[in-house]
C-alpha cells in the first residue's frame, strides 16, 4: 500500500524530532539548575562561614593588628556608609536630571549622544573609573579620601539612574502631561510634580539598583578611598570600606582574618539584598497605591 509508507515516514522523523525536543528541553532545565547552584552555594557559604564571626565586637570594634585575634569592621561599615552617601549625593541628582533630559527634552541628536554616552559609561570597567577618580580628585588633593571614593562610585551610578528615569518617564502616557498642561501648569512643574511623581516607583527602583550595584564595588576604591585600619569620619581622609576590608582579609595569610572576611561579606550582601528587597517592597506598594 503506497499510503502506508507516506504515513510512516513522518512518524520516523517524528521520533528524531521528539528526541531532539526532549534533549533541548533537558539541556535548558539543566542550564537553569546549573546557573542557580553557584548562587545557592555562595549564599550558603556566606551564611555558614560568616554568621559565626558576626558578633558585637565585629560590629563595634576596629581591626586588630595582623596576627592578633579579635577586632572588627565597625570603621569599614561606617566608611562604606559615608562613601555611599557621597556617591548617592552625586549620582542620584545627576542621573535623574539627565534621565529627565533624555525623556522630556532629548528627542534630538544631542539626546542620542547622551543616551549613547550613558551606555558607554555603564560599560567602562570600574577599575578605569577608579583611575580617573584618582587623577581627578586624589592627585590634586594629594591624598586618598572618602570623597574621591564617593566620586568614583557616584559616576558609576549615573548611567543606571539616568536610563531607569528615562525609561520610566517615557512610560508615563503623554495624555497625563497634556492634562497638566491643560490646567496651565508650567513644564518644569509638570515634569517634577506630575510625570516624575507618576514614574516615582520606577525611578526609585533604578536608584536602589544603582546603589546596590556600587555598594559592593571594590576596584575603584583601591586607589581612592584606599582603606584605613582606624576610625575616620572625615571626607578628605583615607577611609575603610567593607568591600576593601573583605578583599584585604581574604588575600591575607591569617586564619582569623579569613573568618572576618566571610563575616564582612555577609554584612555586605545583607546590605545589598536589603536594598534590592526594599525596591521590591516600595515598588509593589507604589503599584498598589497607583493602580486599582
Amino acid at each position: 500500500m503506497p499510503n502506508l509508507s507516506a504515513q510512516s515516514a513522518p512518524q520516523q522523523v517524528g521520533l528524531v524530532r521528539r528526541f531532539t525536543n526532549a534533549g533541548a528541553t533537558t539541556f535548558a532545565v539543566a542550564a537553569a539548575i546549573l546557573v542557580l547552584v553557584p548562587l545557592l552555594a555562595i549564599f550558603a557559604y556566606l551564611v555558614i562561614k560568616g554568621i559565626g564571626s558576626v558578633n558585637w565586637a565585629f560590629l563595634t570594634q576596629t581591626p586588630k593588628p595582623p596576627g592578633e585575634v579579635g577586632g572588627g569592621m565597625a570603621n569599614a561599615i561606617i566608611g562604606t556608609g559615608i562613601i555611599l552617601a557621597v556617591a548617592s549625593v552625586i549620582g542620584v541628582p545627576l542621573g535623574i536630571g539627565s534621565g529627565i533630559y533624555l525623556a522630556e527634552y532629548g528627542r534630538n541628536r544631542f539626546g542620542d549622544l547622551v543616551r549613547f554616552t550613558a551606555d558607554v559609561l555603564n560599560g567602562v570597567p570600574s577599575i578605569v573609573i577608579g583611575i580617573a577618580a584618582y587623577s581627578l580628585v586624589v592627585v590634586p588633593q594629594k591624598h586618598f579620601s572618602a570623597f574621591s571614593g564617593g566620586v568614583a562610585l557616584g559616576i558609576m551610578m549615573i548611567p543606571t539612574v539616568a536610563r531607569a528615569t528615562e525609561e520610566m518617564l517615557l512610560m508615563v502616557p503623554n495624555v497625563i502631561r497634556e492634562a497638566a498642561y491643560g490646567l496651565g501648569i508650567p513644564k518644569w512643574r509638570t515634569t517634577l510634580s506630575i510625570s516624575l511623581r507618576t514614574a516615582s516607583a520606577g525611578v526609585i527602583t533604578g536608584c536602589m539598583l544603582a546603589f546596590a550595584r556600587v555598594a559592593g564595588e571594590t576596584a575603584p576604591l583601591l586607589f581612592t578611598a584606599f582603606g584605613n585600619q582606624f576610625w575616620n569620619l572625615k571626607l578628605n581622609q583615607p577611609t575603610a570600606a567593607l568591600s576593601l576590608q573583605v578583599f584585604t582579609y581574604a588575600i591575607s595569610p591569617y586564619d582569623d582574618w579569613h573568618k572576618q572576611a566571610w563575616a564582612g561579606a555577609l554584612i555586605l550582601i545583607v546590605l545589598i539584598v536589603g536594598a534590592v528587597a526594599a525596591v521590591r517592597i516600595t515598588t509593589s506598594r507604589g503599584m498598589l497605591k497607583g493602580g486599582s
Binding site: 497625563i176 497634556e178 492634562a179 491643560g182 511623581r197 516615582s200 497605591k289 497607583g290
Partner: peptide, 10 residues
C-alpha cells in the same frame, strides 16, 4: 478635557 480620560494615576 481630553479624548481619553487621563487622571493622574499616582
Amino acid at each position: 478635557v481630553f479624548q481619553k480620560p487621563n487622571p493622574f494615576p499616582s
